[in-house]
Every structure is written in C-alpha cells, then in structure tokens.
Computed example of a mutant assay.
Amino acid sequence: MRLEDKLSKKVKVIPPSGIRKFFDIVSEMEDAISLGVGEPDFDTPWNIREEGIYSLEKGKTFYTSNSGMLELRDEICKYLKRKFGLNYDYKSETLVTVGGSEGIDLAFRALINPGDEVLIPEPCFVSYKPCAFLAGATPVTIPLKAENEFRLTPEEVEEHVTDKTKILVLSFPNNPTGAIMDKEDLQKIAEVAIKHDLIVLSDEIYAELTYGEKHVSIASLDGMKDRTIVINGFSKAYSMTGWRMGYAVGPKEIIGPMTKIHQYGIMCAPTTSQYAAIEAVKNSDSDVEEMRKAYNGRRKVMIEGFRSMGLECFEPLGAFYLFPSIKRTGLTSEEFANRLLMEEKVAVVPGTAFGDSGEGFIRCSYAYSINDLKLAISRIEKFVGRLIK
C-alpha cells in the first residue's frame, strides 16, 4: 500500500512554507545570524507572564466557553474601542482563537463555497492562499507594486473582481513588506467592496506596530462593519507568540458559524493563555509602546544600512520587516538568500516565499538585537559589494 496515494489531493499540491526551510540550516550553522523569523525578541512582559503563572497556581486549568472567557472578550472589545474606535458586542461578535491564524482559517471555512474567489494582494503572509484553497475557494492574487509602496489601489481590486469574488483579504500593516494603508487609501477600497458586495477579511495583527500614522481599521469606516471580519491577536504587539492567542470580531452572522467550526475542531483556546491575555489588554499599553519605540530605532538602522550599500528600500511604516530590492545584484531572490546564507552566514527570506510578485526582493525582520542587526548588515554589505562592482 502506498500511503501517499491515500492523501488528500489538495494537501499534496500545497507547497511547504518558503520561510521555514532556511531555519533548519541556520540552527545547525555556527555563528549564523537569522533575520528570518517574524517573532519579537522581547520576553513576554512580566505582568502578563505572572498572570498566567498565577492562574496555574490557582488551578484554573479547565475548559472555558467555546468563544473564550467572557471577561477576556469584554476586555478585547474595550481595547478595540479605545485604540481603533471599533464597537463590537463581546457576547455575540467576538471569538477567541488559537492565534490569529486560526481566525483566518475559520473565516474562510465559514464563508466559502466551492467556486468562490478570494482576492489576495501579494506579497502576503504565507497562510492566506493555502487556507482559502483548502476551504474550497480559488485564490486570486493581486500583485502589489514597489512604486506604490506596496499599497493596494482600488484600480487593482477592480481589475481582478469577477462575479465569483466573495472575499477581499487586507493585511496592513503588511507582512512581509511593512506597508501600511491610511484612512484615505482604505476609504477607496471600502467603496469598491461595497460596490461589489464583498466581504473583507482584515488581518490587523500588526496594528500596534506603526511608525508615524496611527493604524486605521477598515471596519471603522461607514458601511464596512457589517461586511468586515477583523483578525487580531497577542503574538506581535505583546510578544506572546508561544501563548497562541488571537481573536476575530465581526458580524454575529459570521462569528456564530466560525464559532461552530471552532468548537468542533478546537473546543477553546488555552485557558492559561486567556488569563494572561486579559492582563495584556488591560495593563500593558506601556510595554507595547516601549517595544514599538525599540523597533522604530532598529528600523532606521536597517533602512540606512541597505540604502548605503546601494540597494533600493522603501521606508516601511508598519510591522517589523524590511523588503529591500536585490534586483541590482542580478540574482533571483532564492539565489540571493541561499548564497548569503552559505557565504556570509546570514539568513533572510526570499521574497518569492510570499508570492511570485516578491521576486527581486528579500524579507528581513528587525525583531532582533541592535548588535545582531548591525553585524548582519555588515555581512550583507560585504556580500552585495562582491556582486555590485
């Protein structure tokens, strides 16, 4: 019996993540520096950890409601109103998930029927296309342009909309580019979404990490709350990646079905993590601001470093990534990343890991110590210097 013949055809055709393959090499390479992982290098703030520990000491280790603890959902809604002017009912319009990634998967599965199309601007987070495909949709990518600072334009959406389009994915601040969309940008996209009766899946996991303009949620614009599912979580802003805490808010007509899928597949998010998350949204604004300021300083160092070596790099105003162009070197993104790792022991992610439109670029995370970033830049500069004469 050939077990591979028993596998789902969908699973067999999905490629593995283009991010992860470099990390196995880096883990076994002495003196290597990785700029590849999209994970904060800060410890989870102590008050958050302490609350998780305290819940364990008190024996609070039982199932919670499928939707998440009422207190946590209430605090999430208070946070969203305080920070972004969003108003949601914590009982019927809020679902606590196992990371933001589960929320994305649930939304697709709750909404998609076979043959539906999902518009996905790229470069983008690696999960959108596979999750949409597994849910039965046809993913339709919208290539974003460096000359537009990787912002999505209404013309680009119009060009790709068909009578089968059901969902538009927005991911701003963006992974991998660091691009943002301001209120004016979003208003134009909202008009297209309303015109074509689209549901918007807005992944706002980096909403707290902007440098300059404050993040605006498309759900806050007129006519958009009832057609938008907002995905967010605790991994990036609160440095809680391993706690696996996320949430989705949106119309109860969509959150309800998402919860139904969640209760059969997951039951509930980890109880210990939920207690820690309550503390995060209630009392950790200052910790978030401290981390954001540190990222901003690193961001400036990295931009200056890439520009000084002669590589084009637009200024990202969100998340903690740079997406410099390596086209001047004459190498493909894959060749550049492989050779940089082998020759200078620095790991970056090829832009093509985030879609075909990422060709000619690399993603570099600056969620690392300033000393590691400076050393990495010096090594990359040596490598690029050998390529650009």
Rank of each mutant, 00 (worst) to 15 (best):
D5A: 14
L7H: 04
L7C: 03
K21I: 14
F22S: 10
F22N: 08
F22L: 06
I25S: 02
S27A: 15
L35H: 06
V37F: 01
E39N: 13
E39A: 14
E39Q: 14
D43V: 11
R49Q: 14
S55N: 10
E57A: 15
E57F: 03
K60I: 12
Y63P: 13
N66E: 05
N66Q: 02
G68Y: 03
E71L: 06
E75Y: 04
C77W: 00
K81N: 14
R82N: 13
Y88Q: 05
K91C: 08
S92F: 02
T94Q: 12
D105H: 03
D105A: 14
L106Y: 00
A107P: 06
A107M: 15
A110F: 04
I112E: 01
N113H: 05
P114S: 02
G115T: 14
L119V: 12
P121F: 05
E122V: 09
C124N: 13
C124R: 06
F125V: 13
F125A: 13
V126W: 00
K129F: 03
P130F: 01
C131E: 15
A132S: 11
A132R: 05
F133C: 07
L134R: 08
G136R: 10
A137C: 09
A137W: 00
A137T: 07
A137H: 02
T138F: 01
T138V: 08
V140Q: 04
T141K: 14
I142Q: 10
L144W: 01
K145R: 12
E147L: 07
L152M: 11
T153E: 03
E155M: 06
E156H: 02
H160G: 11
D163R: 11
L168R: 08
G178Y: 03
A179Q: 04
D185W: 01
V192T: 13
I194R: 14
K195R: 15
K195C: 10
D197E: 07
L209E: 10
K214N: 06
I229C: 08
I229D: 01
I231T: 05
N232V: 05
S235V: 01
Y238P: 06
Y247G: 14
A248Y: 00
G250N: 07
P251D: 05
P257L: 12
M258I: 08
I261M: 06
Y264F: 07
G265M: 09
S273F: 01
I278H: 01
I278P: 02
V288E: 01
V288D: 01
R292G: 09
E304M: 11
G305W: 03
F306G: 05
R307A: 12
E312F: 07
C313Y: 02
F320R: 09
Y321I: 05
Y321Q: 08
F323C: 04
S325Q: 09
R328L: 11
R328V: 12
T332N: 04
E335K: 14
E335H: 03
F336R: 02
A337R: 04
E343I: 08
E344M: 05
E344V: 05
E344G: 10
V346I: 08
V346K: 06
A347I: 03
V348D: 05
V349C: 08
V349W: 00
T352S: 08
T352L: 01
D356M: 05
S357G: 15
E359P: 13
F361T: 06
A367H: 02
D372S: 15
L373I: 15
L373F: 00
L375P: 00
S378K: 15
R379D: 08
F383N: 14
G385A: 15
R386W: 01
L387R: 13
